[in-house]
């Protein structure tokens, strides 16, 4: 079990260290079961619901990737045909690459902007802080679907605000933010970052508030500069939130459908096709569920790989601070 280098083993090891100290080590599985039976009680409700709504549906979904299921049918077993179709499909190859760029760009920006927001807000006195944070974090609370419409309207070449401002300020025609050159890619990444940096911001803010003030005071008394205090006191407390945010946001940015679908729908042409939109199109335009689910699994593979990567890398990093 311990070859998994996931986050969390550290505190578990420290608990072990404590036990060792008080002569509590060397337990059998049975002992652990007896001692922690309450764990099962706590987990069972969740486990039952997960089985019904996740494990069973996921197993069915995975099964469908080996069939040629189309709309309304059950389909026949076709082995790896959907997988060979997928990896040899031009549009899939493109969408896969662009999804990686999109996810990397948005996740990084969301993290950076969210952290900056949390740090700035932590400096503001209580009272003022509440309403400022309500404003600054607000994009996260709009439905992703609405986020797509909001940005589509904001960037609209004919009636939008940004192109109009551009013309008035620079006195030259505005680029077509959702159509020409690299603009649609930039727009999608910026809009997605706008919508979701609040997630990182709120988690970071909760973590920063949890840091005992004494640690700052001690550091300040020791003559540490602002930057140093950030590095020595704040940063170590942000490692756990960072892992949480990175893993979750990566997975969600991979799966994000509503906002990019409203914004460009994969267009113009198929220039901004993301895996999520491609999945939707394969299922509900081409009515091919077997293939759509196969693309879905490719999305899962991306999220999983990223999560394992983060946990491994940051885990090692963490040793530096603890």
């Amino acid at each position: 079990m311990y070859e998994w280098n996931w986050y969390g083993t550290v505190s578990q090891e420290s608990a072990q260290a404590i036990r060792r100290k008080y002569g509590l080590e060397e337990k059998t599985i049975l002992d652990r079961m007896k001692e922690h039976w309450i764990g099962y009680l706590f987990i069972i409700p969740t486990f039952v619901m997960f089985t019904l709504l996740f494990y069973f549906p996921i197993a069915r979904g995975v099964f469908l990737t080996f069939t040629n299921t189309r709309l309304g049918g059950s389909g026949e077993f076709v082995g790896l045909e959907n997988y060979t179709w997928m990896v040899t499909n031009d549009l899939f190859q493109f969408a896969f690459g662009w999804t990686l760029v999109f996810v990397f760009g948005t996740t990084f920006l969301q993290l950076a902007i969210g952290l900056l927001a949390a740090l700035l807000l932590s400096e503001v006195v209580r009272g003022r802080r509440e309403w400022l944070s309500a404003i600054i974090m607000s994009p996260y609370f709009s439905a992703p679907l609405a986020g797509g419409v909001i940005w589509m309207w904001f960037l609209n070449s004919d009636f939008g605000m940004l192109p109009r401002l551009w013309v008035d300020l620079f006195n030259s025609p505005a680029p077509s933010f959702l159509a020409s050159g690299v603009w649609p890619y930039v727009s999608l990444i910026v809009a997605q970052s706008w919508h979701d940096y609040g997630y990182a911001g709120i988690i970071y803010a909760a973590a920063i508030v949890g840091i005992p003030r004494e640690q700052y005071e001690a550091a300040a008394l020791a003559g540490a500069s602002r930057l140093r205090r950030f590095r020595d006191v704040t940063l170590p407390h942000l490692v756990t939130p960072t892992i949480i945010i990175l893993a979750l946001r990566t997975a969600w940015n991979v799966a994000e459908f509503a906002q990019p679908f409203e914004l460009t729908g994969g267009g113009p042409g198929t220039k901004t096709m993301l895996l999520s939109i491609f999945t939707y199109q394969t299922a509900y335009v081409n009515l091919n569920f077997g293939r759509a689910y196969t693309i879905g699994l490719a999305m899962v593979a991306v999220s999983m790989t990223a999560a394992i990567f983060y946990v491994t890398v940051i885990q090692e990093e963490e040793e530096l601070y603890v």
Binding site: T46, F257, Y280, S303
Partner: peptide
């Protein structure tokens, strides 16, 4: 880990 795995799963597939 199985619980965490569910986060990664795009809902459209299920």
């Amino acid at each position: 880990y199985t619980a965490v795995f569910t986060i990664m799963f795009p809902w459209i597939v299920i």
